[in-house]
């Protein structure tokens, strides 16, 4: 069961904000979306949720037995500020024909909202509003969730809880989740697959396995060895940055490279190895910044 977005283009006036974007969102999988402000993340999510309708390309949704196949929280959480949190949940539960009070209670408990659910929602802090928005997104037993920076304004404990809950929803309830955040460590923590976009285009698609065990390596060699080292790395298909005598590159398996360097009698004056994070991937995505 997959939502497929194919060759999505969207322009405002004459400027394209999305260019040839493709996405598969499977049930049971979390796809992270990262990019700068204005990269087109929210526009992409709004297209997926049916809020933006004039775009080029196609979105196909699988047949669902749910009353509400897709729940979402985009930009700010949306609710009626003059109603209490509970009244908002009851309203949307009826609208999306949820299974009544039982489901509402479960969501309130899962998102730890009991303490303030009876208060008028206009009095909520940003973190509370985010939880209410997330709770509304979960009503109607959706197959998919689309969440635009869902942990905005939450405290560190709250962020951990929410991220764990999202992982639980994907793994145990088989929800497909599309999540964006500027907190790259959050995205890395929960995502099975990460889409990096810039100026409306896909810059990189990263599978979670690419990050697991990936390392950022910096080696320092003598001046005379720079040429042969570059040649060995290039032959191994490795992109690198050269600064003075230091070559920096990403690699999962380091020993074959070190063996080749050793066989070529290249002496390493220094070597530094760091675990690769999404942050490094993100900032190195166009030759390194």
């Amino acid at each position: 069961m997959t939502i497929k977005m194919r060759n999505i283009y969207k322009k405002y006036d004459q400027n394209y904000v999305l260019k040839d974007l493709n996405l598969d969102l499977n049930q049971g999988e979390i796809v992270g979306l990262v990019g700068k402000n204005g990269a087109g993340k929210t526009t992409l999510m709004k297209i997926l949720c049916g809020n933006i309708v004039d775009f080029e390309g196609g979105v196909s949704y699988p047949v669902s037995s749910s009353n509400r196949p897709l729940g979402f929280l985009i930009e700010n959480p949306k609710f009626y500020p003059n109603k209490t949190g509970l009244a908002n949940l009851q309203f949307f539960a009826q609208l999306f024909a949820s299974k009544g009070a039982g489901q509402i209670e479960k969501i309130i408990k899962a998102l730890d909202m009991e303490a303030y659910i009876a208060q008028k929602s206009r009095k909520y802090s940003l973190g509370m509003k985010q939880r209410l928005g997330l709770a509304i997104a979960l009503l109607g037993e959706p197959d998919y969730l689309v969440l635009d920076e869902p942990t905005n304004g939450m405290d560190p404990d709250g962020i951990e809880e929410i991220l764990e809950y999202l992982k639980y929803l994907a793994q145990e309830k088989q929800l497909g989740i599309f999540i964006s955040s500027h907190q790259l460590d959050h995205i890395q923590k929960v995502s099975d697959f990460i889409l990096v976009i810039d100026a409306g285009e896909t810059v990189k698609s990263i599978d979670k396995d690419e990050l697991v065990g990936a390392k950022q390596v910096t080696i320092v060699v003598d001046n005379k060895d720079i040429g042969p080292t570059k040649l060995i790395l290039a032959r191994a298909g490795i992109d690198f940055d050269l600064k003075n005598n230091a070559l920096t590159f990403q690699a999962k398996e380091l020993s074959p490279i070190l063996t080749k360097l050793s066989n070529a009698k290249i002496v390493l004056q220094d070597i530094q190895i760091k675990e690769q994070t999404l942050k490094e991937f993100y900032f190195n995505r166009k030759g390194g910044k």
Binding site: G50, N51, R68, K78
Partner: peptide
């Protein structure tokens, strides 16, 4: 107006049928 002002209209408008 209430739906438009609070932004909840986006929750209603998730498909052509809706």
């Amino acid at each position: 107006l209430d739906d438009l002002g609070s932004g909840t209209i986006t929750l209603f408008f998730s498909s052509q049928k809706n």
